[in-house]
Simulated assay, not measured.
Amino acid sequence: MDHSPDFMKLVADAKTRVRECKIAEVRERQARGENFHLVDVREDSEWQAGHIPGARHIGKGVIERDIEQAIPERAAPIVLYCGGGYRSALAADSLQKMGYTAVVSMDGGMRGWREAGYAEQRP
Rank of each mutant, 00 (worst) to 15 (best):
M1H: 04
D2H: 07
H3C: 10
S4H: 14
D6S: 14
D6C: 00
F7L: 15
M8K: 13
L10Q: 13
L10H: 07
V11E: 04
V11Y: 14
A12H: 12
D13C: 03
D13M: 13
A14V: 02
A14C: 10
A14D: 01
K15V: 00
K15G: 01
T16Q: 15
T16L: 15
T16N: 11
R17S: 13
R17I: 10
E20K: 03
E20V: 08
E20L: 07
E20Y: 00
K22V: 02
K22R: 14
I23P: 05
I23T: 14
A24C: 02
E25F: 06
E25N: 06
E25H: 07
V26P: 09
E28M: 13
R29K: 15
R32V: 05
R32M: 10
G33C: 08
G33P: 08
E34M: 09
N35Y: 04
N35L: 13
F36W: 06
F36L: 02
H37P: 01
L38R: 07
L38H: 04
L38S: 02
D40E: 03
D40N: 14
R42N: 11
R42C: 06
R42G: 04
R42I: 09
E43I: 10
E43N: 06
E43Y: 03
E43M: 11
D44K: 12
S45M: 11
E46Y: 06
W47G: 10
Q48K: 12
Q48P: 01
I52M: 09
P53G: 12
P53R: 09
P53Y: 02
G54C: 04
H57P: 11
G59R: 13
G59N: 08
G59L: 07
G61W: 01
G61D: 12
G61M: 06
G61N: 11
V62I: 11
I63K: 01
I63W: 02
R65F: 15
D66W: 04
D66A: 15
D66I: 03
D66F: 01
I67D: 07
E68M: 07
Q69R: 15
Q69I: 09
Q69T: 15
Q69V: 10
I71N: 00
E73M: 03
R74A: 13
A75F: 01
A76H: 04
A76P: 05
P77M: 09
I78E: 05
I78F: 00
I78D: 01
L80M: 05
L80N: 03
Y81P: 01
Y81C: 05
Y81V: 03
C82Y: 03
G83D: 12
G85T: 08
Y86I: 01
R87V: 03
S88G: 10
S88T: 10
A89Y: 12
A89C: 10
L90C: 09
A91C: 09
A92N: 05
D93R: 12
S94I: 02
S94R: 15
S94V: 03
L95K: 09
L95N: 08
L95E: 10
Q96D: 02
Q96K: 15
K97S: 14
M98K: 09
Y100H: 02
Y100G: 11
T101F: 02
T101A: 07
V104I: 15
M106A: 10
G108M: 05
G109T: 08
M110D: 01
R111K: 15
W113V: 04
W113Y: 11
R114E: 15
E115I: 08
A116F: 00
A116R: 08
Y118R: 08
E120A: 06
Q121N: 07
R122H: 12
R122C: 02
R122N: 06
